[in-house]
Amino acid sequence: MTISRRTTLQWFATATTLSLASWTPAFGAVATGAGVPPPFDVVDWPVNVAPLPPTKGYGRDPDLTDPQVPWPLTFTKAQRAAIDLLGDMILPADAASPGAGKLGVGAFIDEWISAPYPRQQDDRTTVIAGLSWLDAQSRALHRTPFAALTTAQRGTLLDALTSDAPAPALARPVAFMDRLRNLFVLGFYSLPEGKADMGFIGDQVIEGAYPGPDDKALAHLTALMKELKLDDKARV
């Protein structure tokens, strides 16, 4: 896959509907160079991740009126529990919507990393290695697996994995967290609860001409145009 290919697929995704299938660009995912020194001694990145057992995709001509996931899920119980925990940290419950772990987005992550397609298999390697790294790093720091850390200890780890300019030693763990975060965003905001959280309005049949923006939306636009000194060019 070349970058241009990814860019195009990304466009097709936005061009269709909700930007559900957006593709992680390879560029700029992790800033390299000196970066912020890690707040702890970083353990080695796990080298070996067992490949996916042979399984089949849904093929080129599946029944579109009856969608099915034909491949088995492959997370161990411990991996799924860690993912659910991470889901409730990355996208936590608040007044607008439940946490991603509670909502079951972990099942989507499992479906994703268990799919026999190249992009998903790249992500499988990243996610499974990342989960073992989290456990190894937790043991090195606190002598327990990630799941047994205190909330504050887990938070310190996640903070280190969301640095804007990570040190080279943290490049792979940060890339893992980038990927996992984006998978959670996709899995969460494509569900009815996630769309409601974003205030999404659509997917409703409207007979007759498209009504266009309402008064409130137009008022916001008018103010923005004024701010940008574009107010005399408001009409198509």
Binding site: L20, A21, Y58, Q68, A115, Y117, Q120, L186
Partner: peptide, 8 residues
């Protein structure tokens, strides 16, 4: 499957 994302 996969929230409708494109695959090969």
């Amino acid at each position: 499957p996969l929230r409708g994302s494109g695959t090969p």
